[in-house]
């Protein structure tokens, strides 16, 4: 999305519009998961179907057999540093959430969403808010990464599947709150190193 916009718009506008588009798309996913899916498995299957639908929509809309690239005068090192800064910012924001009074409610939802709802926690509001935050960060990451990546319509498929795989393994390790995020970090690092050593990311 960012690439398509960046071709026709100044960089800042392209970035803002990408975030708006991503938030709109994730809001649709949120409504679908709330209306149709009632538990983790159902919601994961919906997200998988939604991911495939979006990827196929992009492929059919932007038909090309070429890999596209974003060119810029800013050195690549800057974009890599920006990715690290974004990662650090994301972890800090997550940690602040979990340490705040609202963090306890988020952990409660993670532990048992139905019970949390029974105790009066507005689970839908928190779920939407967290989805919003993660969408904004993922969009920014995608935009920053577009400079150093080959771009093609189905490029989101890999991260989608990797995300499910990493979270699938991390969730087996148990815990809630920052503990889960740390598990995700450790699993990502191990798998990343394993694939790098194995000869291909």
């Amino acid at each position: 999305m960012y690439f398509a916009l960046e071709e026709y718009l100044p960089l800042t506008y392209a970035l803002i519009l990408s975030v708006v588009a991503s938030v709109s798309l994730s809001s649709i996913l949120f409504i679908l998961t709330q209306k149709i899916g009632r538990e983790t498995v159902g919601r994961t299957i919906i997200a998988l179907g939604y991911g495939i639908a979006l990827e196929e929509a992009f492929r059919l809309w932007y038909r090309t057999s070429y890999f596209l690239t974003v060119t810029t005068d800013i050195p690549l090192l800057f974009w890599e540093q920006l990715r690290i800064a974004l990662f650090v910012a994301f972890i800090i924001i997550l940690a602040l959430f979990y340490l705040s009074p609202k963090g306890l409610k988020i952990k409660f939802i993670e532990e048992d969403a139905e019970l949390a709802e029974l105790y009066g926690v507005n689970t839908s509001l928190y779920s939407f808010f967290l989805l919003l935050i993660s969408t904004i960060f993922v969009t920014l990451l995608g935009a920053i990464s577009s400079v150093s990546s080959a771009i093609f319509p189905s490029m989101g498929w890999g991260p989608l599947v990797s995300g499910i795989v990493v979270y699938g393994i991390a969730s087996q390790l148990g815990g809630v709150g920052m503990r889960v995020q740390l598990n995700v970090l450790v699993v990502s690092a191990i798998l990343g190193i394993a694939f790098a050593v194995g000869g291909g990311i």
Partner: peptide, 20 residues
């Protein structure tokens, strides 16, 4: 269209929890 069936599969996956 090539691989167009995946759109159909995706729609069915989204609706899966209702039937499930």
């Amino acid at each position: 269209a090539p691989q167009f069936h995946l759109v159909f599969y995706a729609a069915l996956l989204i609706l899966f929890p209702i039937f499930g």
